[in-house]
């Protein structure tokens, strides 16, 4: 059975597009058929993060306007045969796709794909409403900053109001050193405040910048810590039980000492 999952955050710049690219690729690596929909009409970006910007012919607005068939607009990934991108239109505005058109589009895509991931635009206006309309599940991305968590809380409230009752949390760009010093909210802190279930945690990682420069998602890089985190999250989405990365396992002297006594 296919699932339509929206990846959203409220605040911009917390990693929605990066997460979408990585989770889509991660699910394809597990052998699933995945389509990524870039719902950020007017500010197209998922194509460049995936390194597919040169292959775009048609976009989502062409599809809903009937200028082409869905299959003509889908761009196959460079590495994975089962991963496709439906790009956003760059020159149209947010109202170019209606919620009903989004629902119809996803119904069509369900015939061919296991996972339909929707990369939501920032904000809570019409573009957001269009992007969440077809989803039955939601992943809320946030960083451990007050502004991002506040916006995530607002988005969770809006998701509830359209019937997505159990959105899952991904805490992105966590700096373990700062969490240890007590200068950054931890995964548990954020999960407690937002009162939602945890899907995963992604450490701040330079490899994200490097992989985005190259247009190759970090999940493809075995040495990337963030890539590992996204691989784990992909497995959890697919129903596997994977332990959370223990962000405290880079133990200092005192925790080693404490653990010795605990055991």
């Amino acid at each position: 059975m296919s699932e339509v999952i929206v990846i959203t955050s409220g605040k911009g710049g917390v990693g929605k597009t990066t997460s979408s690219a990585n989770l889509g690729t991660g699910l394809a690596m597990l052998g699933h058929k995945v389509v990524l929909i870039d719902a950020d009409i007017g500010l197209r970006n998922l194509d460049v993060v995936l390194g597919l910007e040169n292959r775009i012919v048609y976009d989502i607005v062409d599809v809903v306007d009937g200028n082409c068939r869905v299959k003509q607009a889908l761009i196959k990934d460079k590495k994975y045969e089962s991963l496709f991108l439906l790009p956003a239109a760059q020159t149209k505005d947010k109202d170019s796709v209606s919620p009903q058109q989004m629902i119809d589009l996803c119904e069509t895509l369900k015939e061919d794909f296991d996972y339909i991931l929707i990369d939501c635009p920032a904000g809570i206006e019409q573009g957001f409403k269009n992007a969440i309309a077809a989803a039955s599940k939601a992943i809320v991305i946030t960083t451990p900053e007050i502004s991002a968590v506040r916006d995530a809380d607002r988005v969770i409230g809006l998701l509830h109001s359209i019937g997505i009752k159990n959105p899952l949390l991904v805490l992105n760009r966590v700096r373990i050193d700062m969490v240890k010093k007590g200068d950054m909210m931890s995964l548990d802190d954020v999960a407690e405040i937002l009162a939602i279930d945890i899907l995963g945690v992604v450490p701040e990682d330079e490899s994200i910048v490097i992989s985005t420069n190259k247009g190759e998602p970090a999940v493809l890089d075995n040495k990337s810590e963030a890539g590992q985190a996204f691989r784990n999250i992909s497995k959890r989405i697919a129903g596997e039980k994977v332990e959370l990365i223990d962000l405290n396992n880079t133990s200092n002297f005192f925790s080693t000492f404490k653990n010795l006594f605990k055991n």
Partner: peptide
């Protein structure tokens, strides 16, 4: 550290 300030304000 300052995270408690952040939590309280949030």
């Amino acid at each position: 550290g300052t995270k408690d300030t952040a939590k309280d304000r949030l």
